[in-house]
Computed example of a mutant assay.
Amino acid sequence: MFEDTHDHHVLLTPGPTPIHPRAQQALMRGMLGHMDPEVFALNREIQADLRVMYGTEPEAFTALLAGTGSLGMEAGFANLVEKGDEILVCANGSFGRRMAEMAARYGAHVRLVTAPLGEAIKPEDVAAHLDGVAMVAVVHGETSTGVLNPVPEIARLVRGSGVLLTVDAVTTAGMEPFHMQDWGVDYAYTGAQKCLSAPPGLAPIAISERAFARYAARRTPTPLWYCDFEGLRDYWVEHTYHHTIPVNLHYAFHAALQAALEEGLDARKLRVQQLGQVITRTLAPLGFSHYVRRPEDRLPTVLALRLPTGMDDSAVRLALRAREISVTGGLGPTAGVIWRLGLMGEAARPAPYRALMVALQDLLGAPGLVARYEEELEAAGLVGEKQSVLV
């Protein structure tokens, strides 16, 4: 018999994140049709809020795709890449490699700029391979390794060259300021279930006017009908039918996005940085250490910690799961080497991580761990910080 444990499950994964209480409430409302005037009004508000979240130009097209972040990734290549285009993909982890695979499936000739696992892409490596490319694609926060790539510096190199810049903002947008217009980003996307703590199933996208012009100049129709930019614009702007949107997910997303903007992106960024430092300092005496060597390369929202020597990764995570605490290990080469702790949205609160410390104190035989965590919280000024409703 299935047991509903959601009221006390502690989700510390790099996504999905715990649903924001306002989003949870919005999910419960009655159904409306996807062509209802009230839904169109809601969508206009979502579009305006997304322009703020992404820092777009005033008239940039924003929308929600009915799929997760990977659909956001695919839609960019489907609409902006044509067979034979030279595409430069920055790949220093699983999601950069996914970009390369998708671009190739749409007929692109893919050039790779790589960096060792746990290290950021070097802007000079991008500069050395820019000749003749139609697009540069980069993952801002590489979720698989906890690395932050230098998007502003890469964007500076690309700007003015006529080359489009696509940015995967899955673990950054909504948790810190994102400056699409100022940096010169042409296409950006994230997933609703990441920094915004909305339910999975929506990919918020933003498309620059330059990218729309490139799309309009295509020689052949977009191969992916479902996310054709023109079809999306017909629905979102002209209010003509294209496909049925997940209406209740839109309501939940709207509530979560408004909550994020009310808190403020600068405030959210600070909250994540402070809590990340607290967790790292608390766990350091047990032998946990940063996987990403250079501080400037560390992704604040996915804390990648190298495990203590001799710790049985899967056994400890299974024991945590038995206590209703979900922690994610490494992917591929980092499996058994690191944990990836999610610090996005409602997971980036003191209470869920207090539950982790309570469990680890017991499982690892580490007396004083919880007390140290409380001391670090106090030192960081986070003691009065809003506690998660899920713990």
Rank of each mutant, 00 (worst) to 15 (best):
E238L: 13
L157P: 06
V370L: 15
Q193H: 14
A41P: 03
L341H: 06
P200G: 11
M35C: 06
G365E: 01
T17C: 11
G332R: 08
W236G: 09
L117D: 06
L261W: 00
R271D: 15
L257H: 01
N79T: 03
L331R: 13
V113F: 08
P21A: 07
L303D: 08
G384C: 09
G146R: 00
I207K: 07
A134P: 06
M35N: 12
V89P: 08
H242F: 12
L257R: 00
I245N: 10
L12F: 02
A23S: 11
D4A: 15
C195I: 06
H9M: 07
A100H: 13
R214F: 01
I87Q: 07
L390A: 11
L261V: 03
S388F: 04
L112A: 04
W225K: 11
R214L: 00
N43W: 09
Y189I: 07
A335P: 00
A371G: 06
G160H: 07
E346H: 09
A78T: 06
Y106C: 04
R233G: 01
Y241V: 08
K386M: 10
E119F: 12
Y241T: 05
L112K: 09
H34Q: 13
L202K: 12
A211H: 03
Q258P: 00
G93I: 01
G33P: 06
L249P: 12
L71S: 15
I245S: 13
A315W: 09
R294C: 11
Y251L: 14
M35H: 10
T5S: 15
R293A: 15
P150W: 06
R111M: 08
G55F: 07
H242N: 11
T62V: 08
A60H: 04
V113E: 13
A173G: 02
A379R: 13
P58Y: 12
R233K: 15
N248A: 07
V358S: 02
Y353G: 04
A173N: 09
Y353K: 00
E374K: 03
L356Y: 03
E86A: 15
P246H: 02
E378R: 10
T280V: 11
V81L: 08
F253D: 03
A304V: 07
P16K: 11
M311V: 15
V237E: 13
M35L: 15
S197D: 11
A104G: 14
R219D: 13
G329Q: 02
R105K: 09
L299T: 03
Q24E: 14
E385P: 01
R321F: 12
A75P: 04
G76V: 07
V147E: 01
G174K: 00
W183N: 03
